[in-house]
Amino acid sequence: MTAPDAPLLSAADIRRLASELDLRPTKTLGQNFVIDPNTIRRITAVSGTGSGEHALEVGPGLGSLTLGLLDAAEAVTAVEIDPVPAGRLARTAEEFRPGAGHRLAVVLADAMHVSAAELEAARPAAASGPPTALVANLPYNVAVPVLLHLLAELPSLEHGLVMVQEEVADRLAAGPGSKTYGVPSAKAAWYASVRKAGTIGKNVFWPAPKIQSGLVAFTRRQPPETTASRQEVFAVVDAAFAQRRKTLRAALSGWAGTPTAAEATLRAAGVDPRARGEVLGIEDFARIAAHRVDAAETPTEGAGL
């Protein structure tokens, strides 16, 4: 850890580093750099990252949040897809946090595909184990798949805080019955309890995005007890929300094989075939997947049920 009053990157520092690297933020990589130190302090505080933890950061960019995490955690692994800022990050950390080199690892990789083995191979010398906290300013265009991939790939992640587009934050934190509840909400609930933890304005970024950002906090929990695999449960979720305005009997007919098989499966799982996916929790989807009825074992449409 570092002293709480240690300097963080200012707007002038960010622009200086970008100029030095001839770096122009791109929409393709979702690059919006935080230029407000108080926002960094807020994120690290709300994340609850402790002094003995190994934090995982995605998309560190020029290092604003990285420095804040080095102040809060024992060690930080930063995953960056752009080789230009990735190549500068360790030097920036050493300039602002002298002697912290053994507490930081920079992994040049796509966070949507990075593996636990890659992260383990790059583990900082000061880290006693794999990452336990995820704290990141996620690129808007891939925020949900990155979060779900990391939760699946790294069971060591116990909690975290991610900054995403506010609309995405609302979707991730939504519960059954909400207008914003959908595939991201249900799949995130498989891994963790999720809640919205605040809103971030546009002017703390460079360049400033057109929309506000939201903070999403999560705490790992055990997935529902089920005989179905995660992939099987997620297939039900995808099918249910692909046609969210239809009843589950209709929406799941393709997944089950026939409308009759879908109804038989739903009744076996104790779910009303006339309900819609937006009212079901992840436990309900898990029961449906576990009680799947073979279409060959059900009467053809119009001949039964």
Rank of each mutant, 00 (worst) to 15 (best):
L151S: 02
L69P: 12
S128G: 15
T180F: 07
P155T: 01
P145A: 03
I288W: 10
V216L: 00
V34C: 15
R287M: 07
V168Q: 07
A116V: 08
E167L: 10
R24P: 02
E167F: 03
P25M: 04
S51T: 10
I200S: 06
R230N: 03
P124Q: 10
R97V: 13
T247S: 13
V76L: 02
A173I: 08
A295R: 14
Q31H: 08
N137C: 01
R91W: 03
L23S: 11
A189W: 11
D170S: 12
D284E: 14
G254M: 00
S178N: 04
L9G: 05
Q222L: 12
V237S: 05
E53H: 03
A217V: 00
R42W: 13
A111E: 14
D5R: 14
A122L: 03
Q31K: 04
L17G: 15
G175M: 07
Q165N: 11
V58M: 11
V237I: 14
E283C: 03
T26E: 13
V107C: 00
R171L: 04
A3I: 08
T300F: 11
A286V: 05
L150S: 09
A169L: 07
V34E: 09
L252V: 07
M163L: 13
V271C: 07
L108G: 01
P207Q: 00
A186H: 10
L119N: 12
L252C: 02
A262L: 06
R245Y: 10
L305N: 05
M1N: 02
G198A: 00
D110T: 05
E278C: 09
Q222R: 15
R249A: 14
R292K: 12
A268I: 00
V84N: 01
P139D: 02
M112V: 11
T28H: 07
G304D: 01
S115V: 04
A109K: 13
L65Y: 07
V164C: 08
V58T: 06
L154W: 00
E80Q: 09
P25L: 02
R220Q: 06
F234H: 15
T219N: 05
W255I: 07
A250R: 15
L151G: 00
G270D: 10
A261I: 09
F218K: 05
E278R: 08
A295Q: 06
R195N: 06
G160K: 07
G50P: 03
P176D: 05
D22M: 03
N38S: 14
L161R: 05
P7G: 09
A73E: 06
R244Y: 05
T265E: 11
L9M: 01
E20P: 14
I211Q: 08
V34T: 15
A109R: 14
P4I: 09
G175E: 15
G277M: 10
V114Y: 13
L154V: 04
K246D: 01
A239R: 12
S64L: 01
G302D: 09
P223V: 10
A121K: 11
Y181R: 03
S19V: 00
A105Q: 04
A174Y: 11
F96R: 15
